[in-house]
């Protein structure tokens, strides 16, 4: 039987899963609704666009998130590798240049011959419970595995279909992102010219 994996959402989780699967020679269809449709927080065409902060937190062995990154590096994570390669100085933390990070991930996914990126919204009518999904295409049988990696800003239609699939009615709540200022507008004069006592 032919095998194919459909991944919905080209964010951090979707891209990592796509890479790990494609690496083993399995075909992946990666659905990403950008740039045909944007969520209220996303604004560019790249995959793996991060919006809340540019920090992947601590790199220290004695920090929980640092440990998790260490584990992921051992497992050959594409995304952590891209973050390492596009990092900006942040002391013990791993912070990245968002633009460079997203561009690099997009390039790596795009150039992978086993991954096909489909830039359209996947609304999820096909999500169902029951026997393993099999499709016949041109007389060939396909076993289709689906990964829903649509993130905190899952589109409304898909969210409704996920609700139907899982039998839950409440799916979301709210949280927030921090503002960004330009460095040149920060008053650095005194710090530069007044020496510490």
């Amino acid at each position: 039987m032919n095998q194919e994996v459909t991944i919905i959402g080209g964010g951090l989780a979707g891209c990592e899963a796509a890479y790990q699967i494609a690496k083993q020679g399995i075909k992946v269809k990666l659905y990403e609704m950008k740039p045909t449709k944007f969520s209220e927080a996303h604004s560019n065409e790249n995959l793996a666009e991060i919006v809340c902060s540019n920090s992947f937190k601590s790199n220290l062995h004695t920090n929980a998130c640092g440990l998790l990154k260490e584990e992921l590096r051992l497992l050959d994570s594409l995304l952590i590798k891209c973050a390492d390669e596009t990092s900006v100085p942040a002391g013990q933390a791993l912070a990245v240049d968002r633009e460079e990070f997203a561009k690099l991930v997009t390039k790596k996914i795009k150039e992978n011959p086993n991954i096909e990126i489909i830039n359209q919204e996947y609304t999820g009518e096909g999500l169902c419970i029951g026997n393993s999904e099999e499709r016949i295409v041109n007389g060939e049988k396909y076993e289709n595995i689906m990964i829903v990696a649509t993130g905190p800003l899952t589109s409304d239609t898909l969210a409704k279909n996920i609700s139907r699939l899982t039998g839950e009615d409440r799916l979301y709540f709210y949280d927030a992102a921090a503002p960004i200022v330009s460095k040149e507008s920060i008053d650095m004069n005194i710090a530069f010219y007044r020496k510490p006592l």
């Binding site: 540019n54 949280d175 921090a178 503002p179 960004i180 200022v181 330009s182």
Partner: peptide, 18 residues
């Protein structure tokens, strides 16, 4: 304030989600 881009031209306010 944490550096937000490679060039160090923009900074985000740490913990100031609002």
């Amino acid at each position: 304030l944490r550096q937000d881009d490679v060039n160090g031209t923009i900074y985000n306010l740490v913990g100031f989600q609002t």
